[in-house]
Design a protein around this nucleic acid. Structure first.
Lengths: 250, 250
DNA sequence: AACTGCTTTCTTGTATACGAGAATAACCTA
DNA sequence: TAGGTTATTCTCGTATACAAGAAAGCAGTT
């Protein structure tokens, strides 16, 4: 059986986008790997909202595979914190309380601040070029009014900072936590004016890093990521919106 | 079949110690859960050293279970970063280069510093009591010359700081990274005088947290965890010692 | 009519079976 | 003898089968 057959069940809308970074080959060697990525993406987009039940047999049939690789994918997602497997009671998309979400953003802010501090110290010219390029590219998406386009460029900008830290372990940790926060970060950008504010903050962060001012870059990034003030209320709205969508299929 | 049967294969030396926190019941509901904990512990103690091959069938036979739960345990350990599963080439205990180990300690230092900063701000009287109690308990282990006893008390002290941060997500992250670093931290304490130095540093950290000086506590903890100077050479020795032990069974 | 206890059904957790890729050994050729 | 090619074996990845626990439905009692 050819691996290409596991495409069965993919919705037409996402057929072309792999969301993989360029370094990873398009075809996964194990089905479970591909399944993990796909289910993860569906959680990120909110297609599978918080609390939604993930039935193993159902998913197996949908993807045209047996339960085994589905189960392995779910176990991985469980370890990553995106899914919760309760013994003998099935798997659900992880439900995150507002408080916990704030805690996660608090940690993310600190990790990114650390990236920025290191980046300011260790920046190579290639790092600087990519950072500036990512920032300028997102400027183009500002006018378009497409929050999705900005979402991906936003990720590119943050990844550029991670990379510039030159601590590969830190890069992995930051990316993993970012993946867990993806569904909520995405919703955040749908708030009016948030995209513009985000872009402006990126400008300040870029300047601080390029200037080599690690402490200032760290503080700016911390503020950029931390959820506080009225952004907290915005987050609550996004959260209930995601859960509302899931409630139908629960 | 009763779950108690899965005890088969446990060495007598570790039969009584579960290393679980009090909140988790002694009997795991899924075999894979128990297997994950046991294998993880063996990696932590160095019984399974870096690079050692973990054959699924072999482990299955040893534990008296089928390959399925073994495999699920390995997948979890892979997600946690303790094991590396290479497609169709089997699982090995994660090999960590000296550079990567330093990177991991660099991140750990920052996470713990964050815990300390928050702890200094949010410390309750219960938190303070546990922190001081943990510190005093380890003093008793100082003279004994048993690095293992100090190792566990050291963990208790650090966990007390995590808990005092009152950020549950941060607590989880810190504990998980600590688990990954466990094999190496344990070796560190075998270095002469390190135990005493560690204890003294704990004293300073405790004082700073109790005094509410978050920044100082954070800096002290950062220095406490970061590997630098001659401790780096010590680490290299520990590392090769672990690998040497593994090479035999490779 | 509500609650409790039992039975049935459904899903998960584990075992077993099988096919395929990788590692290794054997063999042939230069 | 060394290198490369092929055959064999061994382990992994996936499918299928089965057993056990949880949830849901049913009935009987108070």
């Amino acid at each position: 059986m050819k691996l290409i057959q596991i495409d069965a069940g993919r919705s037409a809308a996402e057929e072309d986008r792999t969301m993989n970074s360029p370094e990873s080959p398009p075809v996964a060697t194990r089905r479970s790997e591909y399944l993990r990525e796909t289910i993860e993406e569906r959680i990120a987009t909110g297609e599978y909202g918080p609390g939604m039940r993930l039935d193993e047999s159902e998913l197996a049939e949908e993807f045209g595979v047996s339960r085994t690789p589905i189960r392995e994918a779910l176990i991985q997602l469980d370890s990553e914190g995106l899914v919760e497997m309760r013994p003998r009671r099935g798997a659900i998309v992880m439900e995150v309380s507002p408080q916990r979400l704030c805690e996660m953003f608090e940690v993310m802010a600190e990790l990114e601040a650390m990236c920025a501090r290191l980046a300011a110290r260790r920046l190579t010219s290639a790092d600087r070029d990519e950072l500036v390029a990512a920032h300028e590219a997102s400027q183009a998406a500002l006018g378009g009014g497409d929050p999705n386009a900005y979402f991906y460029l936003n990720e590119r900008f943050h990844h550029a900072i991670y990379a510039a830290s030159h601590n590969h372990f830190l890069i992995e940790q930051a990316r993993q936590l970012q993946r867990r926060l993806r569904p909520y970060r995405r919703m955040q950008l749908h708030v009016r004016d948030r995209v513009k504010a985000s872009f402006d903050e990126h400008g300040g962060i870029t300047a601080a890093i390029v200037a080599g001012d690690g402490e200032r870059a760290a503080q700016l990034l911390r503020d950029h990521v931390t959820v506080q003030g009225e952004r907290f209320s915005d987050l609550l709205v996004s959260l209930s919106e995601l859960q509302e969508r899931a409630r139908r299929t629960r």
